[in-house]
Computed example of a mutant assay.
Amino acid sequence: MKAIAKPAGLAVDARHALGEGAHWAHHEAALYWTDIEGARLWRHTPATGVTDDWAMPERLATFAICEDARFVLLGLASGLAFFEPASGVVRPITDIEPGLNTRLNDGKCDRAGNFVFGMKDEAAPPQPVGGFYRLNADLRVERLPLPAAAIANSIAFSPDGGTMYYCDSATRTIRCCDYAPDALPTADRLFVRLGDARGEPDGAAVDADGGLWSAHWGGACVVRYDASGHETERLAVPTTQPTCVAFGGPLLDTLYVTSARIDLDAATLASEPHAGGVFAAVPGRRGLADTRFQGMPR
């Protein structure tokens, strides 16, 4: 394991309750993310320093930029919708798990442009009841045959698209499976069991070399695992609760990290004044451009 010499530095002093869903929009050269509890979508353009935001009709858990860049696919707490930033119009697609006390949590497009996402139980403590789903380009939703989760996270895909990573954060493990965009996942198996005394796996991204970068909620770090599940690099983050990562910048060599202030006590917040902000580092690896969602509003 190699510690990255320079820790992540502050990029946007957002101070969100629950910043999440980091996503680099290459066509705009901008970073998007969400403050789930604030129910807002955010965008920061590093070249200009301009930060924009849009109010959502409910908590926004996850999202994806669409192939038709006029639209953003929203993973709202209760279901899926299209959003047109220019007009502010939200077009519902469908509710997800309406009979359960769950909400959408983490999601990512596979390499073919389908949106794969998982759920979080709203009970305290959360129970493993939420499913993993795929929204296909034709807007058909199917449940994937993966173990139910209390807090679904870490959804990411290998460079060739043949491996899907995911987790239930509460188990402190990351799993993977064989994946094809036109078939159901198979060969589900353990990928990583966290060895640290603290921290849970949260959002993740895969680099161009096939390594999985995992934000460790409660662990104040981002850890890279190679395709065999061995830790190779570790990036310190100056806040306890990093939540999600995304490679961005013109060369996709900047690692952006969102974070959260929620549940931190006063003493911790005093020592971590930028908790809930967006951080950035240059870890010596390059990422892959995120695939856009291929579906269109009807």
Rank of each mutant, 00 (worst) to 15 (best):
A3I: 08
K6L: 10
L10P: 12
V12I: 05
R15M: 05
H16M: 13
A17N: 09
L18D: 09
W24A: 08
H27Y: 05
A29D: 15
L31S: 09
Y32C: 04
W33S: 11
E37M: 06
R40F: 05
W42H: 15
H44E: 11
T45N: 11
T48C: 10
D52W: 01
D53S: 15
P57C: 01
E58P: 15
R59W: 02
R59Q: 14
L60I: 06
F63W: 11
F63V: 00
D68V: 01
R70Y: 01
F71R: 00
F71P: 09
L73K: 02
L74M: 05
G75W: 06
A81K: 05
R91I: 01
D95S: 11
T102M: 13
R103M: 04
R103A: 08
D106P: 12
F115K: 03
E122Y: 01
A123I: 00
A124F: 08
Q127R: 09
V129F: 07
R134M: 06
A137G: 13
D138E: 08
E142S: 10
L144H: 10
P145G: 08
A149F: 04
A156I: 04
P159N: 07
D160P: 11
M164S: 14
Y165E: 05
Y166L: 12
R172D: 13
C176W: 10
Y179K: 02
A180E: 08
D188V: 00
R189E: 15
L190P: 14
G203S: 04
G210S: 12
A215P: 15
W217V: 00
C221K: 13
C221G: 13
C221L: 02
V223K: 10
R224W: 08
T243D: 09
P250H: 02
I262L: 15
T268R: 15
A270E: 14
S271M: 07
S271Q: 13
V278W: 03
V282W: 09
P283R: 00
L288A: 09
L288C: 13
